[in-house]
Each structure stands twice: as C-alpha cells, then as structure tokens.
Amino acid sequence: MHEIEQHRITVEPYYQPYGNEIEIFTAAYANGLPLLLKGPTGCGKSRFMEYMAWRLQRPLITVSCHDDLTSSDLVGRYLIRGGETFWVDGPLLRAVKAGAICYLDEVVEARKDTMVVIHPLADDRRILPIEKLGQIFEAPPEFALAVSYNPGYQSVLKDLKQSTRQRFVALEFNYLDAELECEIIVRESGLERSAAERLVRFAGMTRNLKGSGLDEGASTRLLVHAAKLMVSGIDATSACSTAIAQALTDDGEMLRAINELSAALF
C-alpha cells in the first residue's frame, strides 16, 4: 500500500455540525483557502477535520505542534545511511505532493519562526519552496492546509503572529448547546439519554467555574470519556471523578467541589 493511503479515512467519522462550518470549509477548500480552527480543547476541532477529510475523500496528515518543532520537521531533511545522504519528506511536503489535507494541531505551541515555513503555502501562491533541495513544490488544487489553536491559552508568549493569522479563514468552535452535546454523548458512548443529559448539565456547571478556579470547563471529549466508563459499568460519580474532575484540576478544594457536584446530580 502506498504510504499516503494510510492517512485516508475510510469510515465516516461521527460529526455533529453546529452551524454552517461544513459549507464554509467546503467553500474554502474549493477556493484553495487555508483554514484556522479556533476553540477550547475537546470541542470537536480534530474530529471536524477527520470528517471533512472523509467527506472530501482526501488523506489527512495531522501534525501535533510542540515548541521543539523545527521547520525541517515539517518539510523534510537529509539523513545519512551507509555514508550516503538521502532526503526524507516531512509531513507538510508529503501532503503537498499527495494533495492531502495537512492539519497542524495546536499551532501556537510551535515556535513562531517555525510557522513562517507555511506562509507561501497559505496565500495565493500555494507553493512550498525547499531551499535544501533547491526545488519549489506547487500545491495541487486538492491540497489544503488547516491549523487549530485554543485562544483560551493565549498569552503573550503563545500567540499567532499577525502575518500568520491573517492568511486564514477562521472558524470558531465552541461547546455545543445542550441538546447537540447530549446527542453526541449518546452517539459516541451508547449511554442512555437521561444520564447523558445530566452529564451535560454537569459540564455546564464546571464551565461556570472557568476563570474562577478552573482554566477550562469540562470539554465534550471528557464527557464522552465519562459516558464510556459509565456504559462499562462504572458508577456515575466515579466516572465523573476520574474522567472529568481529575482531568480538570489538581486543586484539592476544587476537586471536592466538582466531585460533590456530580454526586448531587446523579
């Protein structure tokens, strides 16, 4: 099997749209515009990318960014084997060559100067010049670039450069309304509806505490984790405590409060 085929998504991922994000993505894709997905962690950004890759029938290459990521890690590098040098494509170059969708997750985690390498790909030139090879790769129409970040972590140190962010069509993701979120939990975990509704209310309560002791409220992803544990026979309070409360905070009093909330709800 060709290596790129591993990145093809063959089974439709479950994705619950909340607005017109699918149309916007499709239109941006058709016009060769890069996408910026903003939103808190665990609210469906990566799932949306999987879904769109499946829908558009393109391979999806995901790179989780971190602060040691260099531009060589993205475009590729020379390696040595048996005294010979040979070139290895990086994920970005592979995506360009194969006309895949390249998704840079948590892009602010990468250093600002690393991100400059995507600039020529993210404007109307849609090219990837690789100095070390002395070649310029032109992205085919099927290629798409998408990046995601969580504005909640935004600090002076972790912000996108204006020259980077102003190249993207931005889609904002947020926690879904209760009905849809409940639907997702039921679909993803098989939990019964009434329990899922309570989980969603529980999440709402933790989100009330954002900025007052919690950095973030419980994400949909955490709710799905808790729901899966519950379906496997773990009682609701333990599931909420291990899958949600402990994931949200280490503060003793806050943990107690969150655990008491789930005990009160279930």
């Binding site: 309560m205 009330n208 505490l209 007052s212 009093e253 806050m254 107690r256 409060a257 969150i258 909330l261």
Partner: peptide, 15 residues
C-alpha cells in the same frame, strides 16, 4: 467555605 464557594458558584453560575 472554599469548597462550598466553588460548589455554589458552579450551581448558580455566579459567585
């Protein structure tokens, strides 16, 4: 007090 404060804040949506 601190625990109850968090608990009530989460319930009421305000401190």
């Amino acid at each position: 007090q601190q625990m109850l404060g968090h608990f009530l804040h989460a319930l009421a949506g305000r401190p």
